[in-house]
Structure formats: C-alpha cells, structure tokens
Design a protein around this nucleic acid. Structure first.
Lengths: 240, 240
DNA sequence: ACTCAAAAATGAGCGTACTCCGTTATATTG
DNA sequence: CAATATAACGGAGTACGCTCATTTTTGAGT
C-alpha cells in the first residue's frame, strides 16, 4: 500500500467538471492543456497496443511531458486506465440516459435493464481486453485513487438507477405482466445484476467467451436472476 | 503478454498429482524438496505479511533457493499465490465432499449450495485480503500459467457440482418443496451463482464489507437468484 | 521592473518482478 | 570409470512503475 499522498491537488476532476472558468490564468491553462494531452495519449496508446503493452514512459513521451510529470495527473498506470475509461463510459451512458426513462416503464424488466446496459456492451466490444482490465481496476484499484473513486460513482449511479427501475415494478403494475416479488431488496438485486455484468465483461475481455455472444449470454443471466432458478412445487395433480 | 515459454517443464503439477513414483532418483527428489520448501515459504510469508508486502526475493531466501530458481517453480509472483491457495482450497473442499452429496438431496436449494460453499468462506475468513487477490488471479491471471489453469479446474469442478445439484431438483421432487423452473439452464445458473461468490469474496477481502456478514449476505444473494426478483402478476381478484 | 514564496515540472534514481546465459549437478553411454 | 548430454541452478542484469530532491515557472506584492 502506498502512502495516502496528501498533497496531490484536485487536478483529477478539473478536466471533467469545469467547462466554465472565465479567466483561468496561464497556470491553469497549462495544466488543462497537459491534462488533455495526457488523456489523449493514454487513450490512443491503450487502444493501439493494449494496456499491458504500453509503458508509462510511452504515454509521457507522446503527451510530451516528463515521466515524473505524468504522475501528477494520475497516481498510477491503473489510474490512467480508469481516467480513459471513465470518459468512455460516461460518453456511452450519456447516449441512453435521454430516452431510457421514457420507455422503460412499459418494457419487461429484462428488456428495461438491457436497454440501460447496452451502451456499455457496445463500448466493450470496441476493446474487450482493456474493458476487462478496467473492471479489474474498478474492483481492486487503490481506494484513494481519484479516478477510481470517480469510476465507483459511475457504477454506483448506474446500479442505483437499476434499483429504481426495479422498484418501479413494485408499487404499481403499469400495464406490465410482472411485478417485484414481495420481500425482495431492490438495491441488493441491482448489485447482483452488476456482479453478473462485471464478470461477463471479464469473461469476454479475456477471451473465455466470444464478444459477440456477450449480449445474449448476459441477457440470459439477467433473465435468470430476475425470474429465479427454482420455483415452488405446484399442488399435486393426483391426491396423496 | 509474455512469450509462451515452451521449455518450462511440468514441474508445476509434480508435487500434487504424483504421490507414487517408486525410485524417483536424486534429481527428482531435489526438485520435490525445493518445490516443498517454496510452497511452505510462500504460504508462511503471504500469511504473515500479506501478499503485497512479500517480495519474490523474500520467498526465495526463506526457501533457500536463488531468485532465478524460484521462477522455474512458478512463472510469476501471482502464480505463487495461486499455488498456495489452490492447495488451501483443495484442503477446504476435501472436507465437505464426503458428507455433502448424502445430505444435499433433502435440503432446500439455498442451503444445499451454501453447504457446498461454506468451507471456502471459512477459509476466506482466515485471510480475507489474500483470498481477494486469489480471486483476482483466477479471473485475470496469465492464461498459460500452470497454477491458474489448475485453479480454473478447481472452480469449474465446483461449479459443475452445483449445476449437478441443481439438476437434481429437476427430474424428481424428492420430498422437497422446490423444483428447477422449466427452461432453466443448470450450468448457466451455476455460473451466475459463482459470479456472486467471486464478487462477494472480493468485496469482503478488500474491506468493503465486514467478513462476518459474508455468509449472510452471500446467502441472501444466492437466495435471490434462486427465487428471482420479479414474479408474474397474479390474476386480478376483481373482474375487469 | 524586481522579489519572492508557492506550485509545477523534471529526470536521475530506486525497488522489485522477472530474464538470460554461464556454471554445476545428475543421468547416460561407451 | 571417463566422456558426454541434458536438466537444474545461480545471480548479475534488465525493464518498468514510481519517487523525490532539485530546478523552473508563475503570479502576487512592492
């Protein structure tokens, strides 16, 4: 474990959540510029060669900064990956957020959930292996890493919207034919569904399963957890 | 990715699957001896300090072999961890295999599955963090690593016995009150359950959830996937 | 313009996982 | 019992992620 590294400034979030700032000053502009170059360099190199075959030196060189400078913008190589993929997932998710809530209520739960997750699967198909590494860093990254925290927020947010979606099947039955089973904890259910997503992405990314089959097999797994594996034995047709 | 490393001999499996060999010869005996020392050294050091705080040099020193020699017995540091925990899980699992099949048929499916997994949870409680790293290496380890292949066999075997167990609820209903839901693919169901196990072990090992609550929360998740999240809306009590 | 404290950037240096090839130990053959 | 072939071993060397003391840049105060 590394020391908490108190002095690291809040450079991480800067590039993302501040497209305003009227008079940034030269210092701030330089920082943003470097931040942008580093993000672009990491994005390109990871895509070109794959995470494992890129050195931090490569990224520093392409971004035209010194090796040491790189680590003022991301605490570690894994954090660079998180930085790149957070942006990617955010892009992917913003595409759906618009239309999903409108149509979700009328869909069967399996379809509604798949609609939420589809953009992530599309993105995963572009670079399965790096996506699998991204899952790894989400799960195991340094707890203090700024980009890892950001990734967890992304994932937790999506998990929460699935929980909300599920809850929607509980109170009323808006034309659909399925409702939340009594006693089911929606957040727990959402978490279970996310466990399946994480591992499905890993399986495909590392070649244990072809990427094309991912949507179908994930759908099958989600359908399974939604409807259950076992059921009560119906009353005997023949008397005892 | 590393080169496949063609010349590495089959030293990996030697210590495990050959307790016979009448006249091994000095060379073979030396190898087994070193193998044993390395396993013991890795076991002890990982347990004492935790995976991250042990260097391969430490292990080599305690096993009294040169640094380079270590890597003839395990391809990498992660492979050393897999080596250690494969042995541990095998030990844990062999304890239950005896009585489980006998009693499983009469249990509710949730209990039957938990009975199969319990020894792993017990083992995980002894060193949660290393167990989490073990999960990581099972999922992301080098595909060619001998011990990783072994670990996958272990996991796949257990997954298969859960699938078998589930199938047992399908054909007949031996006194129980639940049966396999028609159309459910038992292997797929077993895989989903394992996804939950993997991530539950990770969550606890990395401190996101206290170890004591693991059995209960895993049980809740398994119960969820067994019985489903949603159910068909029952027929209207009031006419249309 | 000049000074100066604070922030940022730099790149040589460090620790560690892993490799490579020369050396040594063991088995085999004549 | 040599001589030879081959497998195992050793440890200095390498690559890479990351650190840290030093230098450079910045901008506020005078």
């Amino acid at each position: 474990m590394r020391a908490p590294d108190e002095d690291r400034t809040s450079v991480a979030g800067a590039a993302i959540d501040a497209p305003d700032a009227p008079a940034p000053g030269r210092r701030e502009r330089n920082k943003r510029d470097k931040q942008g170059r580093i993000l672009a360099a990491a994005e390109d190199l990871f895509a070109e060669r794959g995470y494992a075959f890129v050195t931090t030196q490569d990224i520093a060189d392409r971004a035209d900064v010194a090796a040491g400078t790189l680590f003022r913008y991301a605490a570690s190589k894994p954090e660079l990956l998180l930085m790149v993929f957070n942006a990617e997932w955010r892009r992917a998710l913003s595409a759906t957020r618009h239309d999903a809530p409108a149509s979700a209520a009328r869909l069967a739960p399996t379809d509604a959930i798949m609609a939420l997750l589809r953009p992530l699967l599309t993105s995963a198909a572009l670079n399965p292996e790096n996506t699998a590494y991204y899952q790894r860093e989400i799960l195991w990254g340094e707890p203090t890493g700024a980009y890892r925290v950001e990734a967890l927020e992304l994932v937790d947010g999506l998990e929460a919207s699935i929980a909300t979606l599920l809850s929607g099947y509980g109170t009323e039955t808006p034309g659909g034919s399925e409702r939340l089973r009594p006693g089911v904890d929606a957040p727990l259910a959402a978490r279970s569904i996310f466990s399946l997503l994480h591992l499905a992405l890993i399986r495909c990314g590392l070649g244990r399963e072809p990427m094309e089959s991912l949507p179908d097999s994930l759908r099958a797994e989600i359908d399974l957890v939604l409807h259950g594996i076992v059921e009560p034995v119906p009353a005997r047709p023949v008397g005892p």
